[in-house]
Design a protein around this nucleic acid. Structure first.
Length: 641
RNA sequence: GCCCCUGUAGCUCAAUUGGUAGAGCAACUGAUUUGUAAUCAGUAGGUUCGUGGUUCGAUUCCGCGCGGGGGCACCA
């Protein structure tokens, strides 16, 4: 005799088991018409499911947070239905809900074309219009396997075989069409509404394994109403406008070319930006007790064998044979080099921690399909550092690194950061008690930061646990940049030691850390974050002096000389063009400060300032300008305690 | 690496059933000396990514290679 408690506290007593739709109807007919599903004791279920025990329930309508997932899941089914109607013989596999939408993976020999997508979307609209009702059945496992094999759905049969025995095999019917599915689903497909759109076709491996067959994945998006759909599409457009590849071209920062895929040609403005970042990091970490070094680009194969990288990554390393028949690898990382510097001379516990940093350029032969503008390249520069310390120092050092990284991010306006913590994997090196210590140290560092974090269980490196630093940009996208890893393995392999208080040789713990990660990639992230409108201190050109007519060209040259003396990066535009033309051109190139000088300014020894994004004009004395601008262009100062 | 799409002037894009390429912006030249987001006129600019093939003829159709894009897989 179930006693149903609604989320407003009201209770309804039923004499026998009751379905969700009955409850909704009993509350009000208008609610029933809107209802999409039911939450029973916090678990989302079909509206038609039966409740036989006392339960706390909530009727889910389009206004509930959970509704959108149902809509997207049903959209995936509708798409599969449409595909199978239009392209008989296509096998369905899986079709989950993802952020902003859904996809479904299909097995079909013929590729889907852009035109097919339109056809499929139209067919989906037809299906939604017909509004087929949903029915759930539970099948006996063997019967289900046989059924799906008989109708040629071999992937589905394989999925059923892998479902744990404890779970039931539920089949959902939408009208005549049916699919194996865990559910829950909407009462009928008409409830999906009209705010959906198919986005793109892509390849995807069956079960995410590159050894398996490649399937065709169709991505779609679905929202609760047209307005939300339009907002989403606008957001995509906005992201496209910010694309660093596009902005990088228009701002003349860098380019790529065929002869070196995945390698950046930095133009003078891009390189200036790049160097500003390095200066900032250099200043900040020198204050935090790091020593900067530089190690060889090319090192003998034997060192990589010793470090273990050869065995694991040799297919992704660039190598070179020299005339004396030696094999060298172009460094894919800096740590073995840093161990060599550490190893020079005997170290005492009193010397630790030793923090070795390098803006090391590394090369990795990344898979061709993974290359993506500055975000994934084959040659990149890390703001890398390795901290050699005793086991007792690990916690303190981890806390310091975490704090330093978060402070650095704040300087760019990245205040929304999350941490991902990955602990010991199944296959690993090192004693469990050292793992215990390392994991504890990292967790303490995370807790000390007060930042929210996620745990990636068993995802740590084979040599130690790690934290990854993920920042959220101005339009809400997440980028993984920094990393802090505890390494219990490499110092041992490369014979790094120190003498402890008892005069015994010990192996130090090594912390790997990068803050921006790849500088190349970070430049890309910044371009997209700021949409090209870089803060003054990062702008390759900070000030443009624009003359109104050629009469003021000498005065303009006087100004840029003054600015250069004060290390303000400036250019003069003394072309014979209208002021409107010059302003437009430099505004489009995202030049932050324009100093306009005409006859009036030249006479009064002033300039008129116009800042990017504002039409306000401000007149300033030439005697003050250097002072004011020098202050404004200062890079942020981070003192991390 | 795998699947699909794609590659035309410095940039953004055109070129009807296959008939050896065209526009805007930029560049260059000249005129204009200009007051807060495009002054006017003229000139020049291309082995249509490379390479084979089909064809009387290929930017267009086909094969291969390379690059780029969207995903998947990978990411020390």
């Amino acid at each position: 005799m179930p006693l149903i408690t609604l989320n407003d506290g009201k209770q309804i007593k039923y004499e026998k088991p009751v379905t969700g739709d009955k409850i909704a109807k009993d509350i009000s007919l208008s609610l029933f018409k809107k209802s999409l599903a039911i939450k029973v004791n916090e678990e989302l279920k079909d509206l038609g499911s039966t409740i036989s025990r006392d339960s706390k329930i909530q009727i889910i309508t389009i206004d509930d947070k959970d509704a959108i997932e149902l809509l997207r899941h049903d959209s995936a089914h509708t798409m599969a239905m449409a595909v199978q109607e239009l392209f008989p013989g296509t096998q369905v596999t899986i079709g989950p809900v993802i952020e902003n939408g859904f996809y479904y993976d299909f097995a079909r020999d013929e590729p889907f074309t852009e035109d097919d997508l339109i056809k499929i979307e139209n067919k989906m609209k037809e299906i939604v219009e017909k509004d087929p009702t949903t029915r759930r059945e539970v099948w006996e496992r063997q019967k289900a396997i046989k059924h799906f094999k008989d109708i040629g759905e071999h992937f589905k049969a394989e999925i059923i075989e892998s479902i744990p025995q404890s779970e039931e095999i539920s089949i959902y019917f939408h009208g005549d069409w049916h699919d194996l599915c865990r559910g829950p689903h909407l009462p009928s497909l008409g409830k999906i509404g009209k705010a959906f759109k198919l986005m793109k076709v892509a390849g995807a491996y069956w079960r995410g394994d590159s050894n398996n067959q490649m399937l065709q994945r169709i991505y779609g998006t679905c929202w609760k109403n047209k307005k939300d759909l339009d907002l989403y599409l606008e957001r995509l457009e906005e992201a496209e406008k910010r694309d660093h590849r596009k902005i990088g071209k228009t701002m003349d920062l860098f380019h790529f070319q065929e002869e070196s895929p995945g390698a950046v040609f930095w133009h003078k403005k891009g390189w200036n930006l790049f160097q500003s970042l390095i200066s900032f990091i250099r200043n900040t970490q020198l204050k935090a007790g790091y020593q900067e070094v530089n190690t060889p680009e090319i090192l003998d194969r034997s060192l990589w064998e010793k470090s273990g990288h050869w065995e694991k990554f040799k297919d992704y390393m660039y190598t070179t044979e020299t005339p004396d028949e030696r094999t060298f690898a172009i460094k894919p990382m800096n740590c073995p080099g840093h161990c060599q510097i550490y190893n020079q001379g005997l170290k005492s516990y009193k010397d630790l921690p030793i923090k070795i940093s390098e803006f090391g350029k590394v090369h990795r032969y990344e898979p061709s399909g993974s290359l993506h503008g500055l975000m994934r390249v084959r040659g990149f520069t890390q703001d890398d550092a390795h901290i050699f310390c005793t086991e007792d120092q690990v916690t303190e050092e981890s806390v310091k690194v975490t704090k330093l990284i978060l402070d650095i991010y704040k300087a760019f306006g990245f205040n929304d950061v999350i941490l991902k913590y990955a602990d010991r994997p199944k296959i690993r090196v090192g004693d469990d008690n050292v793992w215990d210590k390392s994991e504890k140290a990292l967790l303490e560092a995370i807790k000390a930061s007060g930042i929210k974090y996620e745990i990636n269980k068993g995802e740590g490196a084979f040599y130690g646990p790690k934290i990854e630093f993920v920042l959220r940009d101005a339009i809400g996208r997440d980028w993984q940049c920094g990393t802090l890893q505890i390494d219990l393995n490499l110092p041992n392999r490369l014979n790094s030691t120190y003498i402890d208080t008892n005069g015994e040789k010990k192996i130090p713990v090594m912390l790997h850390r990068a803050m921006l990660g790849s500088i190349e990639r970070f430049v890309g992230i910044l371009i997209e974050h700021y949409s090209g409108k870089l803060p003054l201190w990062l702008s390759p050109i900070q000030v443009g002096v624009l003359t109104i007519s050629s009469e003021q060209n000498d005065y303009g040259k006087e100004i840029i000389k003054l600015l250069a003396k004060n290390q303000i990066r400036s250019i003069i535009d003394d072309r014979n063009e209208k002021i409107n033309y010059k302003i437009r051109e430099h505004s489009l190139s995202k030049l932050p400060i324009l100093l306009i000088c005409g006859a009036k300014e030249a006479k009064d020894k002033t300039v008129t300032i116009r800042r990017l994004g504002s039409e306000k004009q401000e007149i300033m004395k030439l005697t003050k300008i250097a002072d004011i601008l020098s202050k404004e262009i200062q890079m942020p100062s981070v003192v991390s305690k």
